[in-house]
Design a protein around this nucleic acid. Structure first.
Lengths: 227, 227
DNA sequence: CGTCCATTTGAGGTGGATCAACCCTAGTGG
DNA sequence: CCACTAGGGTTGATCCACCTCAAATGGACG
């Protein structure tokens, strides 16, 4: 690993193209850390489960999935990471999920040890790390509710609203992941995901232009069926 | 709320009956905070979802469940908290799940603001808060795998091993929660939980002495079926 | 001893999984 | 430029694990 396009740069505090405050810059800007850019091909592993957590990452371009596997290959995707999202942050020593690029992806990364050091000096850095983990926990708690209680259509509606919120907000949404990934995220098979999307299409709730180019025509309808 | 047996005591640093290092004392001992004891009756609410997070709690005796509800009453229990466990810690301002006493329960609690203050002075306190949240995240990630991938028998086996690990370790395990709670934790109905336990009983994997008094006779068998 | 609630057990229904074609579309190469 | 191919996506038919509804059993407590 780490054998591709390396593009080191000093703590890039220049404006980044995200609406929300940039979590990564809030960290690196604070302490003047060195951030490196790195790229991964579609389906390439970024880190493995139980591997030593040496870096913390932020998606610049592309998309990342994190997941756990059972011994027989059943897979639960814990999260999709999109541009701006931070991932790979651990308070312990090793990663608890595997991370892979969903499509060709560029990330920024900093050494975990630098962050630890910065957190030892500045309590605000420590606080920020805590908040990032707490955000992941909030997402996981919502997702447990989905996996434990919701039916197939409710799950797909939740997924579309989540992606709409994080990807587009306006008009067209370009999903980076395939139906199998969506199924493994929602605890459904790819066929069930496909059927739910087809039904929403024929109900006029959404439009397609290519299987992964979706435009939501009736967000309120989706919110209603999300339960 | 807060109208029952109040039992204030200065940061009780005396030995507590837990094998593992006590997370709460690691916090309160560090900063000399005031910890208060408080008791709740069976099924009493400790705090509600979206309520302001004013206190951080530790179970002394009894058991607590945290959960989220859908509008129609479907419930996902996120965690059972047992003696020694810390809960109610938030990095934001409000609780994201409801907490209720499963049985008559006594907790120790400290004001969140005191912890915030302590964390502003001592980076080790901040670090400890982060680790507690990270521990909850690890549990949630494992539970997503269970809810998204495992079948009924695998879920019940996981549950028994988890409770065995946290409650007893040795011999008999006294479950504080009813079958409905177990079902809402595992994403199953109470009947399915009951059937799985009955089958494990007739397979000789576990023994009953009362529906909630369980002794595991073959942990390895449970681990094998846990996938 | 009777009441109440938790639990077990049974019988039947169903939502989503499984298995199997088939269909698109993008990419390849002639 | 078009035929060919491969991988993703859709759709259909069937199955079954779990849910639902219902009734019986058991245990705790007045």
């Amino acid at each position: 690993m780490l054998t591709q396009s390396l593009n080191t740069s000093i703590s890039s505090t220049k404006a980044v193209p995200f609406a929300k405050p940039d979590q990564f810059c809030a960290l690196t800007g604070h302490a003047g850390l060195v951030a490196t850019e790195f790229s991964y091909r579609k389906d390439e592993e970024i880190y493995g489960e139980d591997e030593l957590a040496e870096y913390v990452y932020q998606v610049i371009r592309g998309a990342v999935r994190t997941y756990k596997l059972l011994s027989d290959g059943r897979r639960q995707i814990g999260a999709f990471l999109l541009p701006g999202d931070v991932f790979g942050l651990e308070s312990g020593t090793s990663h608890r999920l595997t991370a892979e690029a969903v499509i060709d992806t560029t990330v920024r990364l900093v050494k975990r040890s630098s962050l630890e050091q910065a957190a030892g000096v500045d309590v605000q850095v420590g606080r920020k790390l805590w908040c990032i983990t707490a955000g992941e926990l909030r997402h996981a708690e919502n997702h447990m509710l989905l996996l434990g209680c919701k039916n197939a259509m409710e799950r797909v509606a939740s997924f579309l609203l989540e992606m709409d919120h994080r990807l587009a907000g306006t008009g067209m949404m370009a999903l980076p992941m395939c139906r199998k990934d969506i199924g493994d995220y929602l605890g459904l098979t790819l066929e069930t995901v496909s059927r739910a999307l087809s039904q929403l299409h024929s109900d006029g709730v959404l439009g397609f232009s290519g299987a992964r180019q979706i435009v939501l025509r009736n967000r309120q309808h989706l919110r209603n069926m999300d339960a």
